[in-house]
Design a protein around this nucleic acid. Structure first.
Lengths: 150, 150
DNA sequence: TTATATGCAAACAATTTGCATCCTG
DNA sequence: CAGGATGCAAATTGTTTGCATATAA
């Protein structure tokens, strides 16, 4: 595994990273990465596919999946499974967590100020070194809670 | 949504719960529930299917899925997406979180003593009422960490 | 007795793979 | 110009659905 737990590198560094591994920098890969970085979160493979085709019309869905696999290996994207049917992907930027409303499906991002503490505890208690997290808290947002209580 | 945030009821209560909703208590449903409760966690639909067939040989996979849907509705099982390809299910027992080792795939359960605090903060800050959580912290367990540093 | 559950097989949807061709380094 | 990357289409896999039959209440 590469690039453990650091910040989102810029395009140039990413290209370097790829070349060092013997991978190539192709228009398709650039396009997929760009979409993910611009949209900052929660895209499905199919959505990425459609958006990236504005740049690379001949792009195929399998290339999207293959690229996502590669970016996952490089810790550049995180694969999520929010409430729903398929995977979603987002750029590995600052750590944040997800609140998913079971009523309307809305996803709220939040920062958990306690995570650092928790990670440290886990390391001392279990020797477990966290590299990433998928925290999905499910419940009902304010509006949906109100709607239900009627 | 039914039965918000309470403890695992016993068989008899579950039967009652089902009947009240107009659902029936069938051998298939008993078998699936029994397997999930006995195995306390992390079974895929297919594994449940195979195990439950010891009790009910004519059981079909679609019935397993249908039963899991029902049990989810009743908050009796939780659907997880640990690192991997498909859903996993576990009895909704006391709240715990999952540590998933990216090296060997091992899953460690842990209690997060800070969750109560976090939930309370979220409610006051976002008006969001948490009913369940999927917390999956990914990283490397002690052994795998050591193995990698060689 | 009668509506709910089931099993089976067929349908679906998301993801993966084989292979000939393309193109980056 | 050589090996990695791509597009396409076909294959897989996990899950869902339609429908005739079985069964719990």
């Amino acid at each position: 595994m590469t690039n453990r737990g650091n910040q989102q590198p810029r395009q140039r560094e990413i290209s370097k990273l790829l070349r060092e591994r013997g991978n190539r920098v192709t228009p398709q890969r650039r396009a997929v990465l760009k979409i993910i970085q611009e949209h900052e979160g929660h895209l499905s493979a199919d959505e990425i596919y459609n958006l990236a085709r504005d740049d690379v019309p001949r792009l195929s869905l399998s290339t999207v999946y293959r690229t996502l696999d590669l970016l996952k290996e490089l810790d550049l994207v995180t694969e999520l499974h929010l409430a729903g049917d398929h995977y979603r992907y987002e750029a590995q930027s600052g750590r944040h967590q997800h609140l998913v409303c079971l009523g309307c499906g809305k996803v709220i991002e939040f920062q958990c100020s306690h995570c650092g503490t928790i990670y440290r505890e886990l390391f001392s208690q279990h020797g477990f070194a966290i590299t990433s997290s998928r925290v999905e808290l499910l419940g009902y947002c304010e509006e949906c809670s109100k709607a239900m209580d009627n």
